[in-house]
Computed example of a mutant assay.
Amino acid sequence: MNTTISNSVLTASIKHAGAELFSLKNNQDKEFIWDGNPDFWSKHSPILFPIVGTLKNNTYTINEKEYQLPRHGFARDMEFQLIEKTGNSAVFSLESNAETLKKYPFEFELQLIYTLENTSLKIEYIVINKGESKMPFSIGAHPAIALRENFENYAFKFEKEEPLKFNLLENDLISNKTETLKTINNVVPLNYKLFENDAIVFKTLESNSLIILENSKPYIQVDFEDFPSLGIWTKNQAPFVCIEPWFGYSDTAGNSGNLFEKEGVIILEIDQNFHSQFSIKIL
C-alpha cells in the first residue's frame, strides 16, 4: 500500500512498507527522489533503525547476550501502519513485536511523520521507549536525490565554512583514517571518485544544512539541524546522491560490542520519547 499527500506545489508518496518516501514531485510533475532502479540501488529513502551503518560481525551484546542485526537495522524492511492522515501530512507507526524482540530486546514505537509545508517536505522521527529498561538505539535518514544532469554538473554548498573532515570506512566499519573535502567558498564539486571508498561519513559538522547545486544553481536544500552526523553516498555512475542525517554510525574496529557503549548511540530513558526532524526543500 501507498499513501500520497500534497499541497499547492508538491506531492509526496510514501510506501507503507518501511514508511519509505518514494516520490516527491512539484506541480510540473518533476521528480526529485531516485526511482529505485535495481541496476544501481533498489531503495529510495529508507529509515535506518535501530542502528545506523554496520555492526562489527553484524553482532552486538545486551547484558552479555549476543544479538544480530543487519546493516541499518530492520525498520526499513517492515510494514508500518498509517495512523493519521490529512491532505498534506501522514503519520506512520511501527511497534515492537515478537519478531523484533528476537533481534532487538526492547519494546518501542517508532513513528514517522511526513508534512508538506510550501516547497519543503518535513520528515519527523519519534521513538517511544515502551519497555521497562533504558533503550539504546541509533536512527537515521537515507533519502536519494535524483540527479538528471551529468554527475559532474552538481556540487554541494555547505551552510558554513569549515574543515570538512570525514572518517573513511574499512570493511564497512568506521576507521581512524580521515580525509578532508576541498572546498571553494563552501562548495564541493561532485565526482564519483569522492565515493571510491563508499560513503563519506562526517561524525560531526558545524553546518546544519547543505544545498545541492545543479549547473551552479540551487536545486535542493537539505536541513538537518537536529542531527549530529551526516553520511553522503552514491554508487559509481548512479544518477542520484544520498544526503543522510544520522544519530550514530557504523561500529569502529575497536568497539566493545555492547550496544550501550556504541559510539553515537542514544540512550532513551523508560517512558521517554525521542524526537528529531529534517527537511528537503525544493529550490
Rank of each mutant, 00 (worst) to 15 (best):
D29V: 02
E31F: 09
E31G: 10
I33Y: 04
I33Q: 03
I33H: 02
W34I: 09
D35I: 10
G36D: 02
G36K: 02
G36F: 05
N37K: 07
P38C: 12
P38N: 13
P38F: 13
P38D: 11
D39I: 15
F40W: 15
F40P: 01
W41Q: 01
W41V: 04
S42K: 15
S42I: 13
S42P: 05
K43H: 12
K43T: 12
H44F: 10
S45D: 14
I47H: 03
F49G: 05
F49T: 06
F49Y: 14
P50M: 06
P50G: 04
V52L: 04
T54A: 13
T54S: 13
T54E: 12
L55Y: 00
L55T: 03
K56P: 00
N57M: 09
N58Y: 10
T59M: 06
T59Y: 00
Y60T: 06
T61R: 09
T61K: 09
I62Q: 08
E64L: 10
E66V: 09
Q68S: 14
L69D: 01
L69V: 11
R71G: 01
R71Y: 11
H72A: 07
H72S: 08
G73Y: 08
A75W: 01
R76H: 11
D77Y: 11
Q81W: 02
Q81T: 13
Q81M: 10
L82H: 04
I83M: 02
E84P: 05
E84N: 13
E84K: 14
K85Y: 01
T86Q: 11
